[in-house]
Design a protein around this nucleic acid. Structure first.
Length: 613
RNA sequence: GGCCCCAUCGUCUAGUCAGGUCCAGGACACCAGGUUUUCAUCCUGGGAACAGGGGUUCGAAUCCCCUUGGGGUCACCA
């Protein structure tokens, strides 16, 4: 890792010294401008050039990796890590590797692996090497599932034992737990006491031969360990701080620490970018690398992403939200679904309610939330997708949590990120995830689209999440809805979520007399209801029923009957056809609905509300 | 509790490494006006931060120390 010293983070040396070897770094704001969405001119990208001139040795290929464990779903924190790894490698003509860490057989699932890949794909984060998915993946350093690499680990594990650098241990879980508990009560950090080292070689052999369950522990050298990190700087852990940790579990699988070190070395990973929760683990990885004779990669630990309230953003937040809602409403049984079945058994429900560490299956959780009409927080990438966020807006926003481009620049695309991302501008402090700002970014991205672009994206979103709109609306109607919605939508989901009345049957519309409804229908002279009644014949008689014709008809009506105040008739119409005071622009709304529905709904509305006056 | 790390508006952050151009800039949110057929946009303006205390220096948001606060970790999870 000759390229970097602790005080000169690789990100900067790569960028500045490469571009301007003989002048002071960080001049020339031009590159910053290049990647902005509005400017796609082909000027030279500062980081895509060949490696540093000062580096005489053959340039080291930058290789980063994203290595999720396939349990649950890709959440935004993981997505950001992947994004940074991707950008770092891509901006340096390196390779980005995806590796699935499925050494915990109980928690891993194939579906989760697939989900991770789908999410990464959707975000636009492609991997050069890894599991094959669509047209990505493959590579010469596989397999990329750790569960398929067992023989590699076993060989190395045995070597370590043979060299006396690791040893078998037979302590039971109960024994260990008791010692841990005692340490905790004594207010001390637990360290493995090396009980297994008391055993003679013969005793070990005998126990092994007898098939007694055992793990392999690494014999950690008794010396301080210094971690060098490109983001956090240097930190030295005192001798004894890292104990003899387990490197092979009783089931024969390596632990995370062992597998990660072996795979990173074998896959030639040069830069390990991961979440800060791994910082202390790095000490373990370093001693392991030394014992195995591996070169150390460059480390960069990224700060965590938090909820606005300062708690760590986690998959459990969904359980937390639902549990709080259930408790608040005093519900004590699992909700019953449409088929008359409870979403989970009463036992599971009770256990879940009583223990905040218990999680419901995501499917059951979401089913229960839907039945109870509880909005679950968006945590996973797929949640944001379903909510109608654009991948480019999500990526842009995610990049801003923990990194900045400088120069007050905050709107950029993936290519800009790749071209400018460096560890020198990575934030050390945790970031609270601000959904309001994400939403504002999404709105801006949507408003920057042209009508065709929005239509295509909205259509693709509807196909997956709101197929009913494509069934009930023909292409022309759908197009009107898109055009009417683009500049008022913050998400791709909004045109559908807020306009369900468009696909409802006419007799499904109901009218509740809320404050705005009262104002529009019952106030004024004549009242809204009266205006509604009097405009009905002209709507029934109107030759065409497109937005332009309707605008002419209704505006003329407003001139004649409402002092030219369009709102006095627009609002009653809106309420009549939608059931409430909110809809797209009224002429578009009526045009989408069509004459038959409009007339039917106005009649229904008059019937329902005339009695209320 | 041990060990390690961190600290600029409510939030994300620029500025910190090379101390003066910073009575601290941008964005989101918020507040006040304005535009608008509803909603949402949009426009204008406003309030809002260097955690505290000591040093060093002519000069500190920037360097050093302490305090306080926050975070990570201490698994046969990753």
């Amino acid at each position: 890792m000759s390229e970097s010293s602790p005080r000169h983070p690789s990100g900067r040396s790569n960028q500045s010294s490469t571009s301007f070897p003989f002048s002071a770094p960080r001049e020339d704001p031009a590159p910053r401008v290049n990647g902005i969405l509005s400017d796609s001119s082909g000027s030279v990208d500062p980081v895509r050039r060949s490696p540093s001139l000062s580096d005489r040795k053959p340039p080291m290929t930058v290789v980063t990796r994203f290595a999720p464990s396939p349990s649950g779903s890709l959440h935004v924190g993981g997505a950001r890590t992947a994004l940074f790894c991707w950008a770092f490698a891509r901006g340096r003509d390196g390779r980005f590797v995806l590796r699935i860490e499925d050494t915990d057989r109980k928690r891993s699932s194939e579906a989760a692996s697939l989900g991770f890949m789908t999410d990464l794909d959707w975000l636009g984060i492609g991997w050069d090497e890894g599991p094959v998915h669509g047209d990505q993946g493959g590579g010469g350093h596989g397999p990329y599932f750790q569960s398929e690499r067992l023989s590699i680990y076993t060989e190395l594990l045995e070597r370590l034992v043979a060299e006396g650098k690791a040893y078998h241990a037979f302590d039971t879980a109960a024994e260990l737990d008791a010692k841990r508990k005692a340490a905790r009560e004594a207010k001390q950090a637990y360290r493995y006491d090396r009980a297994a080292l008391e055993l003679s070689a013969d005793e070990v052999a005998a126990k092994l031969a007898a098939g007694e369950p055992s793990v392999i522990r690494f014999r950690t050298p008794d010396a301080p360990i210094t971690i060098t990190d490109e983001v956090l700087g240097e930190a030295t852990l005192p001798a004894g701080e890292v104990d003899d940790f387990v490197i092979r579990k009783a089931d024969g699988f390596p632990t995370y620490h062992f597998a990660v070190v072996v795979d990173d070395a074998m896959m030639e990973v040069s830069h390990v970018l991961r979440a800060q929760e791994h910082f202390s683990n790095t000490a373990k990885h370093i001693v392991l690398q030394d014992a195995l004779g591996f070169e150390r990669p460059v480390y960069g630990h990224l700060s965590l992403i938090f909820n606005p309230d300062g708690s760590k953003m986690s998959k459990r937040d969904k359980d937390k939200t639902l549990r709080a809602a259930v408790r608040e409403r005093g519900i004590d049984a699992p909700p019953i679904d449409a088929a008359g079945e409870p979403v989970v058994t009463a036992e599971v429900w009770a256990k879940w309610m009583g223990d905040k560490t218990v999680q419901l299956e995501l499917e059951s959780l979401e089913a229960a939330a839907a039945l109870l009409d509880v909005a679950l927080p968006e945590i996973n990438v797929s949640d944001f997708r379903r909510s109608g966020y654009l991948p480019e807006a999500l990526c842009n926003f995610l990049a801003l949590n923990g990194w900045s481009a400088g120069d007050d620049l905050e709107k950029f695309d993936l290519e800009f990120l790749a071209g400018n991302f460096g560890l020198d501008r990575v934030q050390k402090t945790p970031a609270k995830f601000d959904r309001d700002k994400l939403l504002a970014f999404n709105l801006d991205a949507i408003q920057a689209m042209d009508a065709d672009g929005f239509h295509d994206r909205a259509r693709a979103h509807a196909e997956v999440f709101h197929p009913v709109f494509l069934e009930r609306l023909d292409e022309a109607q759908f197009r009107v809805l898109c055009d009417a919605s683009r500049e008022r939508s913050k998400t791709l989901d909004e045109p559908f979520r807020t306009n369900r009345f468009l696909v409802a049957a006419d007799d499904e519309i109901t009218w509740t007399v809320s404050k705005p409804v009262r104002k529009a229908m019952f106030k004024g002279e004549p009242t809204g209801l009266a205006l509604l009644e009097s405009i009905l014949p002209s709507l029934e008689a109107s030759e065409a029923f497109d937005a332009a014709t309707l605008e002419a008809t209704i505006t003329a009506f407003a001139e004649a009957r409402a002092d030219g105040n369009l709102g006095r008739i627009a609002q009653p119409l809106r309420i009549a056809v939608s059931g409430g005071p909110i809809s797209p622009p009224i002429f578009d709304t009526l045009a989408i609905l069509g004459r038959e529905s409009v007339v039917a709904r106005i009649r229904g509305c008059l019937e329902a509300l005339l009695g209320e006056a």
